[in-house]
Design a protein around this nucleic acid. Structure first.
Lengths: 191, 191
DNA sequence: TAGATTGTTAATCGATTAACAATC
DNA sequence: TAGATTGTTAATCGATTAACAATC
């Protein structure tokens, strides 16, 4: 497969493809292109999809439940090993395969299992406290679904899946009828 | 509030703040700064949060249910007016305030209500078909939760809330221990 | 007035793209 | 060999930042 075909497919410049592929250390064949199999292997490797990532989830509400049950993640190497909540009625129950534990057990369990990823599906009001708790327990990557910017140490990565931001960008488009580059930055400033 | 304070708060350069604020047409007072109230008003205006956006949701599974019930959206001006699914057992039921209709009714209802935003929470395999249907019915903004790149006309905006992409970036960080700029582009190429 | 902070111009930085010799 | 496609250098483009006169 050639850089031109790939570029066409994803709507970018062919040079961009060649550049990125080269940056990953994969060398194609001049006059021929790239091997699809090699390409897949290289990308999986680069994205860290080859190893299974274990994660804990905090906040067993609707969103947490949806994520625990989402069938796609296992094929991307994610395994949720425990869920936490403060709601007495949820503790002890299971969401699919995932057991729900009291939040007070979090530090204990995370440290014991050596889990490095935490997923926050709790309300915004308790998200920062949960993040602190996760970081303190040794978590290095946080997937944050709460609509709030979390403060964490530099060596911890946060990925915001901030739905309100996504919604704001779409709303803006509908209201003003144009797509902007700055939307993201402006939105953060607004929080 | 000064550009310096705002910049400090969100971790960017003060000039950036001044530039963006000016770009929105809001003029601050030299030597004083910006009025917080004016700032909020300007941002809400710019982001289109002042008008309520009506949306339809397709795919009344776990994720769709979580979104319909998510309490935060109403304060951001989103109102989901109808949900659609092909599952006979779901049709006719309600998720909170939202009624579930058969997918065959989508064009009819969307056109009738003049809704401009569609939310896709269906499996990846049916997402493109749903997108086509939404576009055909007059939808101009699609909020896509299915892990697939949708093809739509230029005048339709798609916002991908692609969880697999978010997961890949975090996995990559855990596996390789560094944050990258290119992750997004590379990830698209991998799909 | 003196201090602070703006809006904007000019300089820097990085990312994207065009062009092309090297290679299969 | 001839055609195609690579990796990379140089040129372009846009975004970020530093600097500062204008202003409250």
């Amino acid at each position: 497969m050639s850089s031109g075909e790939l570029a066409e497919e994803i709507g970018v410049d062919p040079t961009q493809v060649r550049r990125d592929v080269a940056a990953l250390g994969y060398v194609g064949k001049a006059g021929v292109g790239y091997s699809v199999d090699d390409m897949i292997a290289i990308l999986e490797q680069a994205l860290g999809l080859t190893n299974t990532t274990e994660a804990v989830l905090v906040g067993a509400g609707h969103l947490g439940t949806a994520i625990c049950r989402y069938p796609g993640f296992s094929s991307y190497g994610l395994r949720i090993v425990a869920a936490f909540d403060t709601d007495e009625s949820k503790i002890g129950t299971s969401i699919g395969e995932v057991k729900v534990f009291p939040l007070s057990e979090l530090g204990h369990i995370v440290r014991r299992l050596g889990v490095k990823m935490g997923i926050i599906t709790a309300p915004a009001s308790s998200a920062q406290g949960i993040a602190d708790l996760l970081v303190e327990s040794g978590i290095k990557a946080i997937w944050n679904f709460a609509p709030i910017s979390l403060r964490v140490p530099d060596d911890v990565m946060v990925r915001d899946e901030d739905m309100a931001a996504g919604l704001a960008i779409l709303s803006r488009f509908l209201a003003h009828g144009r797509k902007t580059k700055d939307s993201d930055g402006v939105c953060q400033a607004g929080q």
